[in-house]
């Protein structure tokens, strides 16, 4: 299988604080990986480095086999169009309606006519279980759960092959959070994209049935199935997963 994400020898630091020390991280196509770690362990930094929003001090980041430091702007654009990002707070464009928010990445492709865009936007709305009349609302008029769903619809709009989720269930109540996880899982099964998520929530990891990568001691400590990682002997994993129930 081709590696969708390939990071090697990553060093990142803020001023004097070293966050990642010679970190390596690979995700194969179709994998679902949850990134866990204590606060301040550099999960979000890693996510931002995958997105190319932040450049590591040293090291190589490859998405879909293309180096992120490639200077060709068109190639950079093409990589970005193959990934979708769900920000923790949604990061919807506040001046645009729900419809225009979801249509934004589609219109950026510059190939689609308005009919197709309209149908696709409504299809994505349907996917995240929102009604067609919600399309005309402004982001300020949405509830927290709806913001997450619209943001997911926007992230999925251009049919990404890689979906990055930053705390997808933070701030949702348990029922909504379970529904949201099921939604992502169903979509992942039917469309088959790769998912990398940052989360603190064990229930989300179980619900998605994902692999787990533990970020501690400035590197990826261990990566594997939930079962395997839960039995890994380290202060962080013991605390995070509770005492292993053997």
């Amino acid at each position: 299988m081709e590696n969708v994400i390939e990071m090697r020898g990553i060093w990142s630091q803020y001023q004097d604080v070293v966050i990642h020390r010679d970190l390596a991280f690979q995700v194969a196509a179709g994998e679902v990986v949850a990134l866990v770690g204590g606060s301040g362990s550099g999960k979000t930094t890693l996510l931002r480095e995958i997105l190319g929003l932040l450049k590591p001090v040293r090291g190589m980041v490859k998405l879909f086999g293309v180096d992120l430091s490639d200077p060709d702007p068109m190639r950079q654009r093409n990589i970005r169009q193959r990934l979708g990002m769900l920000f923790q707070q949604g990061a919807l464009f506040s001046a645009l309606s729900v419809f225009d928010n979801i249509a934004f990445p589609l219109r950026e492709l510059k190939r689609l006519d308005e009919d197709w865009v309209r149908d696709l936007v409504h299809m994505k709305l349907q996917m995240v279980e929102l009604e067609p009349h919600h399309a005309q609302l402004m982001p300020a008029e949405l509830s927290g759960g709806m913001i997450k769903r619209v943001a997911l619809a926007r992230a999925l709009a251009a049919e990404p092959e890689l979906l990055l989720l930053d705390e997808p269930t933070a701030g949702l109540d348990p029922v909504r959070s379970r529904n949201f996880v099921r939604l992502i899982k169903d979509l992942q099964k039917s469309i088959g994209f790769t998912v990398v998520l940052v989360t603190h929530d064990l229930e989300t990891i179980e619900g998605l049935g994902s692999d787990v990568a533990v970020l501690a001691e400035q590197r990826i400590l261990v990566k594997g199935s939930l079962e395997a990682v839960a039995h890994f002997d380290h202060p962080f994993t013991r605390q995070f997963f509770g005492a292993p129930s053997v």
Partner: peptide, 21 residues
């Protein structure tokens, strides 16, 4: 079956859209 499902989703959407609201 997977392709049929994807097409069915498009079809379901089209019906909903074609009914003038």
């Amino acid at each position: 079956p997977a392709q049929r499902e994807a097409l069915q989703r498009a079809a379901a959407l089209a019906e909903e859209m074609s009914a003038p609201s």
